[in-house]
Write a protein that binds this DNA or RNA. Structure first.
Lengths: 338, 338
DNA sequence: CTGTTAGCGCTTTCAA
DNA sequence: TTGAAAGCGCTAACAG
């Protein structure tokens, strides 16, 4: 194997800058770090800054990390890069991280797989993945601080979620308010707590209106199109047949609407659909999907604030983002037939 | 400001392992790197490995990066984390990177913004962003190797793309084959070369069938729902009114179909629609969207192969992923009315 | 078969 | 107001 490694120019180091400016490297370091308690002659500072400019110098993060034991990076692990919900969260997190001078490293896949890869490259980890069976080990000794995002975990840990229960309850109440009585729920996978909290929102809203939830009216499904389609297909066979569906997830709702159509029924004339999460395409679907918008970007930015607090030794615990859900009425729900 | 930094346990170092195993650190290092040219007494190796296990030791990437001048990380910059097309690419890239022992750091946003942040943390950069006006500076001295992905750049650089031209041509030919003559094109933003190549595919397919492209039949649009809706709305006002639309992007097509409906027309009875990129929801739309599937994951994995070659001093140039596009016939296209 | 040594590029006391 | 020196955790060349 011929190693044809090209001769890349050696990176300019702090020493080079120091030499060019006729000062010691330590001075360059302190200048670049904006050390307040430092008094430098303006002209010296000028010379150093000029040299930095001229040589195009950038500090080496690896060397800094080694010395300071801080990488200035944060890790975000999400179950699936293709999931719009998570990328929405990621966008919020990324902005906040950047504002704090941190890089956000986003990876998809299982916690197991990513944990070890990320663990030693970041100062803190945000886990967007966790099921009842596989909660990542938070805060193992020797590992950076970690917390759950959009998932609630064991009491000792920390987490941040949106008010899923309120969101689904809001959607359910809306259907009730326009006259529906037989409302079924397309629930998410019940081994993730987010889905369980949404289910509770549905159950509560139904109970508070004194409405019955017949057997089978809660159909578990994965958070994607196929899952929603399968769940809806089953629900439509039930007696009494539901006149409305609250979906725990908008992507699943897209599948559900397709299933309704394939049974020769139509949305919203025969079956009304309301879904959690206001995804970008909701307004362009046929019919446009009525949704409950959740503060996802805020969930992301909040999680960064929290992990930063943890990194600095603070306590954060379990938080629910306070911003209330918002109902976005479009065309997929109407009063029930007859 | 009270610094309440908690006392996190000091990380286990290689020295600790060496001490625990009664050997020198350098031996631990060579063992952990799987140095072939090393002969160690099996029992010594065993002792070291046991110590590693017992202490839960992991090597410090910052220290390794400083020493070896390799971070074992790759950067991927994509325009928008929410764009399904790009996350599909990212998934392919991530898998290949992991297989090669590299971490893929994904960030969204502008090249300008991300470049400097990533530059010194990775061994190579994959740019998924570039317009005619803002080509990132590839391979600046002192920066890691970089190339474009899903974008073609200046001759001196390197890039990998899929065969966009063939893809759109395939969709256009399909519409022609079922009888359409008046086919309009929802083109992407013409300052990105991907969009220009797709436009060329449309033009060529029309020309090769001897079909006329009336003025205004090519509408530029951004690669999202609003863009598609706006473009389609304009196209439908033209005389002769097109009977079919080829969209350079499936997300834009979702918007286009909505625009068709809002003019009181229907898909595919009045207007047929075919789009590039087989997005997950295509099959669940109303009507299900006929698309041309492009090898996006392969585009991602291929880009990783290429940047790895560059990192090792090799040349790669400009490549087009060979896997041909595939037509996925669903319900959004039918023979023209009358 | 295993140990010694030097040093990657930076930050941080401490001294001048 | 600035410089000197030590060392973060690791790897690689060289000795033994």
């Amino acid at each position: 194997m011929t190693d044809s490694r090209a001769a890349r120019p050696r990176r300019v180091t702090m020493k080079d800058v120091a030499a060019a400016a006729g000062v010691d490297a330590s001075l360059v370091s302190r200048l670049l770090s904006g050390d307040e308690s430092l008094s430098v002659r303006p002209e010296t500072e000028q010379r150093v800054m000029d040299a930095v400019q001229r040589l195009g110098y950038r500090r080496n993060p690896a060397a800094r990390a080694l010395k300071t034991a801080r990488t200035m990076a944060l890790g975000l692990i999400i179950p699936d890069l293709r999931n719009v919900i998570y990328t929405e969260i990621a966008v919020g997190a990324e902005q906040r991280a950047a504002a704090a001078g941190y890089v956000l490293l986003i990876t998809g896949g299982s916690a197991q797989l990513r944990q070890e890869i990320l663990e030693d490259r970041v100062d803190g980890i945000l886990y967007g993945v966790a099921t009842a069976d596989t909660v990542p080990t938070l805060n193992a000794p020797g590992s950076p601080p970690a917390m759950l995002i959009n998932r609630r975990g064991p009491a000792e840990g920390s987490s941040v979620v949106v008010d899923d229960q309120a969101g689904v309850a809001m959607g359910t109440r809306y259907l009730i308010s326009i006259g529906h009585r037989w409302i079924a729920h397309i629930a998410g996978p019940q081994n993730v707590d987010t889905a369980r909290r949404r289910r509770r929102g549905y159950i509560n809203a139904m109970a508070e209106a004194g409405l019955e939830i017949p057997d089978g009216y809660i159909a578990e499904s994965s958070f994607n199109e196929v899952g929603g389609a399968t769940a809806a297909a089953g629900l439509l066979q039930l007696t009494p047949r539901p006149t409305a569906l609250v979906a725990a997830n908008a992507v699943a709702a897209v599948g559900a609407m397709a299933a309704v159509r394939s049974q020769g029924l139509s949305v919203p004339e025969d079956i009304s659909v309301v879904a959690l999460h206001d995804i970008p395409q909701a307004a362009y679907l046929n019919p446009p999907l009525t949704t409950v918008r959740m503060p996802l970007a805020e969930l992301g930015s909040r999680s960064v604030d929290m992990i930063l607090t943890m990194i600095n030794g603070g306590q954060v615990g379990h938080v629910v983002v306070a911003t209330p859900p918002e109902l976005i009425v479009r065309g997929s729900a109407a009063p029930p037939p007859r």
